[in-house]
Design a protein around this nucleic acid. Sequence first.
DNA 1: TCTATATCACCC
DNA 2: AAACGGGTGATATAGA
Length: 601
Amino acid sequence: MKLSDCYREIWAVDTEYIALDGNAPIPVCVVAKELISGRTARLWQNQLAEPFYRPTGDVLVVAFMAAAELAIFRQLGWPIPSRVLDLYVEFLRLTNGPAAQNALLRPYGVGLLGVLEFFGLPSIDHAEKTAMRNLIMRGGPWTEVERLAILNYCETDVVALERLLPAMEQRIIGDFETHGQALLRGRYMSAVAGMEIRGLPVDCDLLRRLNTHREAITAGLIDELNRQYGVYVGGSFNEAAFDEWVCRSGLEWPRDSSGRLNLQDDTFKAMEGVAPALVAPLRELRKTLVQLRGKGLQVGIDGRARTSIRPFASVTGRNQPSNREFVFGLGKWARSLLKPAEGMAIAYLDWKSQEIGVAACLSGDEVLWASYNAPTDPYLDFAIKAGLAPPNANKSTHKAIRQKAKAIVLGVNYGKGAKAIALETGMHEIEATTLLELHQRTYRVFWGWVKATVNAGLMGDSIRTVFGWSWRAAWLPQVDGKGKALQLNERALLNWPMQSNAAEMLRLACCLIDEGGIRLLAPVHDALVIEAPTAEIDAEVTRAVALMGIASAVVLGEGRVLGVDQYVVRWPNRFIEPDNEAAEEMRLRILCLLSRMESQP
DNA sequence: TCTATATCACCC
DNA sequence: AAACGGGTGATATAGA
């Protein structure tokens, strides 16, 4: 099958735009070449009133990282193309191996130039690309010569796409199914574009105050504590100084095999039990300092925080936005920086126990599916089915056993072992082993599915999601980029189908919600954020939840609708993480430090 | 003094 | 030998 047999027009497209920190992109030019007829459209800023394409099913738009192009189309008010093929995403899919080896599998990187090189195709050099990007980012007005240079540069990427497409075409669209799946990924890029344009509404005043005083607060806290402890040297935590303090204090602090002190919060917590008055202030400071990070948010002049969603960036196909630029990647207290604009509301909608539901349906384990839908919850229902609790048990009557069952049910999805579960819950390793065995006996179909997937992966097969995102875990010899031996991680193979199919569900929901005209703001792995005027938010939540249900049923099968938790914030309120005392405590602590700092000269 | 590596904490 | 999946990023120390 050839693409040119499937479409009347195939447009290779590249755009140039100005993207200033935190602001939506401003179009500079668009160049597109129709690959069947060979005609080229070179459109400068002032020629962008009308799209060069028809948004119909017989027109294919080909791009590299199409979210950028689609963002420009959206900014221009152009209709969304109904068929999009993103060669960036397809390259990621075709070269998707173990995370530690992906650098080897993509020796020239994942940029357009690197991908051209990967296929042995000619391209312009990096220096030229950088120079042109700088010229564009400098902003207008551009001279006539510069304008021509920018258009020509834009066209070089279009020509590159024209060369790249035949090199990748057969592997992308081998048959109708893979063709359609590639288009589904392209379709998602438009939802991504929408989210990247809209950004998240931020309380700019609070953020500005925090940014102004962050360093002074940090320094003040360190000084205050250090008078007694002396473990910070030059504003930095010093291991040697801490070692001395530990010796002075006469504490038996845990160390690793080479004698280095263990500095994990867990260890601090344990030592706090031994010597609360000594350890607690230090532990609190260390936690607070970590939480005070977060000056990376890029906020546009409209008060919206924007960052790249980085779709498909992980081996499971999850989005991977920068943790420092993405509000939901910061500590949870920082979500209180989210504040709807006047008259607006935002809603955080997350699937309940999404990966358990995915596992139940895709494995075909009706017992696990029954547990997922149990009137109690999946954890207690496991305890009941395994004979650990009576059929009438509930959360309050069997709290302790529910906690244990929860650790097992959640841990199983990650391939967690008895030792780790015992450590986490405080139960004996033998008990954890017993419970894990009970899980295997209770959910036999699930375990058969897991083992078949792991075996296929170990044999070198690609494993794949319902929509064809794929991963080959055993591909190259098991060494990393430096020749260091790698062990193929069976637990990664075990978890991959749940995480990656959950990611498919999220992407489809994003498509349906965005296309349904709901203002979609952000994806958060098993959740998404929408926005609406306060008067409309309840209705929009209802619509969005229904669409999440459809996405669930499309991925998991007829009638397999996963539940959704809802959290709505209406102006003038801000986002307060529900049922999270730690986050709220940290928020109040930081606000307190902030106002104290502001009241001092 | 700059960079690489290890450790740790955060998110789902 | 150990055994918690996928990530990003800040920080401190070691190394060049």
